[in-house]
Design a binder for these strands. Structure first.
Lengths: 123, 123
DNA sequence: TTTTTTTGCGAAATCAATTGCAATAAAAGC
DNA sequence: GCTTTTATTGCAATTGATTTCGCAAAAAAA
């Protein structure tokens, strides 16, 4: 049976406080502000458990690599800010269903990654 | 000065024969059909040279990892067939420029990855 | 208290990509 | 055509980054 350890709760808290896709190091860094003994292996183990439990989703970003984000937020695209290196989730979908692919291709899913400058960095 | 080795020409030929994004192992496997002594390190070295020379472009696919494709084909999206594990390039862009991101986000580029079944696998 | 999961730590396994080096081969020079 | 020069290859070893693992100690929950 799964136990509510301070480490696991801290990792979930990290995602609550920073509601955007986070890399393993980010989770470790933010998590250590909550539980300073937090270990990298513990982060890896818990990220895996949280994915298994359906609380997190694993995403592979073309520039940032493996990231994790909270589930249950509906379809969204990803924005990567080249200035602060943060990833953001942008709700909604700007893809035209009909011209998405030529006849014959059966499209089941899609991932959209945007690149640019985020509002906090633009000013 | 750059030499036209049989290995390098074979690698370029591989991309001419299979005009879709290819992974390093695919380039190696197809390349060995043309030059059986072809070595992995040679593939890595030449892919890098061909990128430097602007003949290939490096792409990071969320599922397939690092891939290379020929340059000069204009903007396109990528389609990944879950049946044959091949990547395809789909010319054109089905993204709505205006609703692409909320106000404040400056979008400079984007990558779109589609997932599904390709025409050859669908029948 | 007792039981059992979980942690921290360092070691180790993976995987992708790079490098050193002697042998090879393309291109230039004779 | 033959020799010289030097880029390139093949091979194995190595790096570097990411992820996993073994195990004793710690801490939930029973």
């Amino acid at each position: 049976m799964r136990r509510n350890t301070t480490q696991r709760m801290a990792i979930e808290e990290v995602f609550r406080q920073n509601d955007r896709p986070l890399g393993v190091d980010e989770v470790l860094a933010y998590g250590r502000k909550l539980v300073e003994s937090l270990n990298q292996a513990t982060v890896y183990r818990n990220l895996k458990l949280l994915v298994d439990d359906g609380r997190l989703k694993r995403v592979t970003h073309p520039s940032l690599g493996t990231m994790y984000e909270r589930t249950g937020k509906g379809h969204h695209h990803h924005f990567y800010c080249r200035a602060c290196n943060h990833a953001y989730e942008l709700p909604g979908c700007a893809l035209n269903e009909d011209e998405i692919a030529p006849d014959g291709f059966v499209v089941e899913d899609h991932d959209v990654f945007l690149f640019g400058i985020c509002p906090s960095c633009v000013r």
